[in-house]
Design a protein around this nucleic acid. Structure first.
Lengths: 255, 255
DNA sequence: GAGGGCTATTGGTAGGACCATATTGCCGGT
DNA sequence: ACCGGCAATATGGTCCTACCAATAGCCCTC
């Protein structure tokens, strides 16, 4: 381990400080500085997806810190979804594109830990999913509509053998968002339908009649889209979401 | 350090495994297990906001791991916004309610690292901020409207001495979201106006005329709210956001 | 071609030195 | 006797060194 920057064997490395010229002492954590540096490198595109960072030992040498510090930085980056760490030979830290699942998870814990009622979350979801309807009507391609119909059919089948679940419904709503051909919107809706709803509505398959109704509405919605009838589509979606909202409101399970 | 659970001085602690009964070796990281445990405690409400966790040294003893491992776990929790770490006497790890800023940051990096165009993000923002207008009109109290007017006045003042900045505009939009009296919506809008827009539109004070126009529209919007004229308010907001969208679209700076 | 050793790399431990900060208590001045 | 400032102490995070264990891809041998 190179020690030339440090006077004593465990003097704070800081950021090259320690020469005694009263340089502003690094008030921030060393590991945080490393996190920021690597994050910046990734955001600038100088480190691309699947690129491999140097090994922990190399990094300590380059940063002039100990392995522990580097590892803390890697942990933070990993928990933020920016890198993925693999063990074993040819292992190491690899840059990974953060998935919507990751951010959805963060959003879910945020909502769970905050004093938010399920009703509030549902309302926010309604605003968003209703707001995109005009865009969906405008941009949905025949392929999009075919994909939606395919999901509807799978839901009908699932209803028959009673395997209908919240997951199928979520799939439909995500596919609707995909019809906007806007990756940002799709990602946000995905975030909503990720761990969030799963945790919020434990009453998943509570009412079988729910599934039947929901499935029918899904189909009517697709038809409206196909007719380019934005008003009708919005009305259906509003009723569809409102029913979910009504079901979730009475419980008012704060978290 | 208590070592009684471990056979050798550095045997993997696992989760109390090691008795030799071929118990499934803890394939996961020890620090991750600690993270999960503490996270669970917080989500269950057994650790509440501002509660103080035991000190690092106590935690190692209770978990039967080394300090490095505990510290890695604390780092992850801190980066996730679940705890806040203070140094010095009476310091330690304190449970903190994750702020919208934190999740907004995660959202921002996600959006920046994903192949999203600024136009897509702006469109998503438009959908949301337009969608809440009816709710705002419906629920805004006189106090809410007074707060909005106050911001407008501050913007007028700022225009005079040329200190108008994006921050003031963001403040207005967040206050509008607050008028919904829905914490989830407010948090999402805050997330949008957090680090995301700041990084997206470096052209902050590019056009002074922009600020003038924007400020005027803000004021007209408030008036429409006061009249409970949802259509007019939505129209103003649409034009207002559209102008921002148009400004950001031509550049098409992917990230 | 299949299997076993090699090696690079992460995961974890122990123990210690250092730094930051709040509390406490002493001491001198008033 | 009271009070303000200052130093000692206790608490607790931050970082270091050195070591060992587990893992997984690669290559070499059979």
């Amino acid at each position: 381990m190179t020690v030339e920057q440090r006077k004593t064997k465990s003097g704070r490395a800081g950021s090259g400080t320690g020469v005694g010229l009263f340089s502003p002492v690094s008030a921030v954590r060393v590991s945080q500085v490393i996190v920021d540096q690597i994050r910046l490198l990734i955001q600038q595109g100088r480190l691309k997806t699947d690129d491999r960072l140097p090994s922990e030992r190399d990094l300590c040498e380059q940063f002039g810190v100990s392995r522990v510090t580097v590892r803390e930085a890697l942990r933070v980056l990993e928990s933020g979804g920016l890198i993925e760490i693999r063990v074993g030979a040819r292992g190491g830290a690899f840059v990974s594109t953060p998935s919507s699942a990751r951010v959805g998870e963060g959003l879910a814990t945020l909502l769970k830990l905050s004093p938010l009622t399920a009703a509030e979350v549902t309302e926010a979801r309604m605003v968003f999913e209703l707001g995109i309807v005009p865009i969906v009507v405008d941009r949905a391609t025949p392929e999009d509509i075919a994909a939606l119909k395919e999901i509807c059919e799978r839901q009908q089948d699932a209803l028959k053998d009673e395997s209908y679940s919240m997951t199928l419904s979520a799939e439909f709503h995500v596919q609707v968002a995909a019809c906007t051909h806007n990756a940002a919107i799709e990602m946000l809706v995905k975030s909503f339908h990720g761990p969030l709803l799963m945790s919020l509505e434990e009453a998943k398959v509570a009412a079988p009649v729910m599934g039947l109704l929901g499935s029918t509405e899904h189909r009517e919605f697709v038809d409206a889209i196909e007719r380019h009838d934005a008003d009708q589509a919005a009305a259906i979606m509003r009723a569809h979401l409102q029913r979910t909202a009504d079901r979730v409101a009475p419980n008012t399970p704060a978290c």
